[in-house]
Write a protein that binds this DNA or RNA. Sequence first.
DNA 1: GGTGATTTTGAGAGCGCTCCCACAATGGGC
DNA 2: GCCCATTGTGGGAGCGCTCTCAAAATCACC
Lengths: 342, 342
Amino acid sequence: MGRKLNLEDIAKLAGVSRSTVSRVINGHPNVSPETRRRVLDVIARENFQPNPAARTLVTSRTQVLGIITPQAATSIFTDPYFPTLIQGVTRVANQHDYAVMLWLANTGEDADPLYRRILGSRLMDGVVVASVVDGDPLIPQLIERDFNFVVVGRPTFDNLNYVDVDNRRAARIAVEHLIRLGRRRIGTITGRLDMVAGQDRLNGYKDALLASGLPVEPELIAEGDFSEASGYVGMKALLERGVDGVFAANDVMAISAMRAIREHGLSIPGDIALVGFDDLPMASAVTPALTTVRQPISRLGEMATEALIRLIEGQLSTPYQAILPTQLVIRDSCGAVTRTGR
Amino acid sequence: MGRKLNLEDIAKLAGVSRSTVSRVINGHPNVSPETRRRVLDVIARENFQPNPAARTLVTSRTQVLGIITPQAATSIFTDPYFPTLIQGVTRVANQHDYAVMLWLANTGEDADPLYRRILGSRLMDGVVVASVVDGDPLIPQLIERDFNFVVVGRPTFDNLNYVDVDNRRAARIAVEHLIRLGRRRIGTITGRLDMVAGQDRLNGYKDALLASGLPVEPELIAEGDFSEASGYVGMKALLERGVDGVFAANDVMAISAMRAIREHGLSIPGDIALVGFDDLPMASAVTPALTTVRQPISRLGEMATEALIRLIEGQLSTPYQAILPTQLVIRDSCGAVTRTGR
DNA sequence: GGTGATTTTGAGAGCGCTCCCACAATGGGC
DNA sequence: GCCCATTGTGGGAGCGCTCTCAAAATCACC
């Protein structure tokens, strides 16, 4: 293939100047309709796309967004949460003519140099930050460098842009559902307690018990980390202590808890009622189908990205803080439904 | 924050010229040790990073790789295959100082303009292509534009760079394992037959039957598409027709097939022996634990990326075609193991 | 100590775009 | 028909780098 064309070449072909071609491409108003058409014809015919590096050099805008997730720990990739989020982000970004860069920061120690590299390079106009762990240096660094960013999940700092669901309230509603069904010894398998979502869901669990006059017993709180393995182990522990209901902080843990319960010879929901969180596709596929809290994961990614783009383009003055609704999806694992076949 | 520094500023601070600073940054040999040290000191002190756009403008190298997947259909995101691949790609890319862009082409129809945009912009030095469907215009376009790319999975075109496992042979070994265990009426739930991996695994299934003198019966071949739902439906069909062994073309389908078998009142492996493909984390978590073919997904991503970088940097002359080994992981679902607890 | 080869350094041009400014062409308004 | 606003167009500068080339400094050798 011959070498790439540039603005000057297009200008020559259309019989105008480089400046006019630039105006046409950038939708500048002061171009006569006749000229505009002629230039557009040439651009289409030659399949011309302006060189983004040259453009970036002068505008210092890249039309690139980033997704950064501080802990690409295995747990992130065993459940479809993260891929779904990415899908939402890329969809909106591409719609608005932004490209998306992906950064998975591996461990805590060597994350810092990577962050410096990411944020110091002028590769992106802004980033969506997901799955932040307390104490991670990413957010402080973003603030310090005055970088454009939107967080998915409520951050521990004030006045930041973020999109989240009301985890605490959603968890409370889920546990109150179990209480309403007559369960009295309700345990929970928590998420990572160094993540705000994990803390919030645990607090929602406590809220529900307290509001109903039930005791919050530490021995009924099994600390998990959102992973398959921790759900299984956590459930084993709760089985030792005796429970008639369990709220798991995500579906992945709920489903491995099911396995633990079954291996223990108990039935769901007969002996133990179970509620999860996320409403992953697998939640409706398991037997019994899992009652769970549906959160709009893909929508979270989309809205975070929309907000980020508005931030970049200077259309966002006050902090953008959106809370999306969740929904308790009642299936079989909580025992509320009289079985009517599927 | 004050405005960003450039080479000239660093040069002034170090008492040298812009050219010398450039040489130091790019590791050019002809710089005196003394000067080099002084410049590096200033760079470190000022936390300087050269402007990538300016660099790209002159070198026409971006230090950015892409991952393109033509069908971001839901199925891709319900199983951890894709995320794991991405992880492998980003790890290697970041090690070599490349950033990674992610492109998820949604449907078949509007993919074409997106491809034009992706390939026409000079945003990336090369791409890793995953999950290609037969007839997708991506690969022809990449070839036509002389774009650097490596495919994950054997493509239908010759002489391309790719990394894959020997799906056909792996499938054959899996099915031969069932035959050796005495199964005689073995069905299969196929993957997408418009993807090479799906075709290869089906052919491996046929190979095994033929080599053992067993008939290949069309009614024992249930066409699936790698999705949860299709595994369930496919298994229902096979149950109608009667089987004593099943090879599912991936673990996601194998696990939903388990559900179908259980709902049908049959036991695994007693009545039906089952083998999957992938060895996802969930394969060892289900009961009975799934016998399956382990493929090194993350390694595929890593090797594809290593090859791509070598291609970009001109160190690859002949087509790079790597076949990674698979391994049949024997667990409980095929009935080969005398149960000894977990 | 002088000569030529070699190493080290600096200045200039140019990558392809946007943006500013100047100029040409048009259009009222009296 | 003249003046001033308005619209359309072109040329120049400059974004921050790399790369080529020439000049300056150093070295090796007799």
